[in-house]
């Protein structure tokens, strides 16, 4: 405030740093995007090629010729069904946590948290044995169930905050108007929490879509999502990077677009509701 020139210099410095940060953050991704449109010669050029004649051939080559398109469908199926399950089961549970008071509530709540924070590798082994015993190994169901259970605690943590922000008087008014507790939840509270539910759902979708280890261990062939399919394309010799890039772009672009949608709610989701964005 006292001297404008210092302030302006600082502002310029800040923008320079932020610009560098954005370039560093985006360049690798952009490079992958470019790679997916390069032919073999441009890809293997030892001098990086920023300008080249784009080709669309990588996409059909991998998705149709190598039959990778079912993997994309698997990804969608897994993410959508585990998200729907998560919300259907998690939202009422979160509502219960937000409203009801019972002994051991906070302990149970903490327990929910640990299930999300547990390293996937430590749950994956028994899950593998478990699904083998059930005969569900190598099916899409195994992945859906695994994703549902690990995202459930996130839903409960995130949604509890959203429900807690809705005044109790709203349910009470609905119940005075003759609705049951469950009716009050479905017809009055849930619609009010719709934006929060939506954000939670998107975040669930993203996490399930990006998940690798459970899917990698539970399905080797049938029902593989894209994340599991990508490493299969990488071989010690003669990896077709254009095709790898094409799969990687299809596997990430929807998420990048989704991020724009939920940016506001993202902080809350990723910090388990501890910080409100």
């Amino acid at each position: 405030m006292i001297d404008q020139s210092t302030n302006r210099a600082w502002r310029r410095f800040a923008w320079a740093v932020l610009l560098v940060a954005v370039v560093v953050a985006l360049t690798p991704y952009v490079w992958m995007l470019l790679a997916s449109f390069k032919n073999r010669v441009d890809l293997l050029s030892s001098v990086p090629k920023w300008v080249f004649t784009p080709t669309l051939s990588n996409y059909p080559a991998v998705f149709i010729d190598k039959e990778y398109w079912p993997l994309a469908i698997n990804s969608v199926l897994i993410s959508v069904s585990s998200t729907v399950l998560c919300i259907l089961i998690g939202a009422p549970a979160a509502y219960g946590f937000a409203r009801a008071d019972f002994p051991g509530k906070e302990d149970l709540f903490f327990f929910f948290l640990t299930t999300r924070m547990a390293p996937p590798i430590s749950i994956a082994v028994p899950l593998f044995l478990f699904f083998t015993a059930l005969g569900l190994i190598d099916t899409i169901y195994a992945v859906v169930i695994a994703h549902t259970s690990f995202n459930l605690s996130l839903v409960v943590w995130m949604m509890r905050g959203f429900f807690a922000e809705i005044p109790k008087e709203i349910d009470e008014a609905a119940m005075m108007d003759g609705r049951s507790r469950l009716g009050a939840f479905f017809f009055v509270v849930a619609p009010l929490a719709a934006p929060g539910i939506g954000a939670t759902a998107v975040l669930c979708f993203i996490l399930s879509w990006n998940e690798f280890l459970y899917a990698f261990i539970l399905v080797a062939f049938e029902g593989r999502p894209l994340t599991v399919g990508i490493p299969g394309l990488v071989t010690p010799h003669g990896t077709l990077w254009g095709q790898v890039a094409a799969v990687a772009i299809v596997a990430t672009l929807p998420i990048v677009l989704f991020t724009f949608l939920v940016q506001k709610q993202l902080v809350r989701g990723l910090t388990f509701g501890a910080v409100k964005g």
């Binding site: 690798p28 992958m32 490493p231």
Partner: peptide, 15 residues
């Protein structure tokens, strides 16, 4: 700035 953390870690590895 968020792009790196939102894309699948597998894709990050490949990139």
């Amino acid at each position: 700035l968020l792009v790196p953390m939102m894309i699948a870690p597998v894709a990050v590895g490949l990139i």
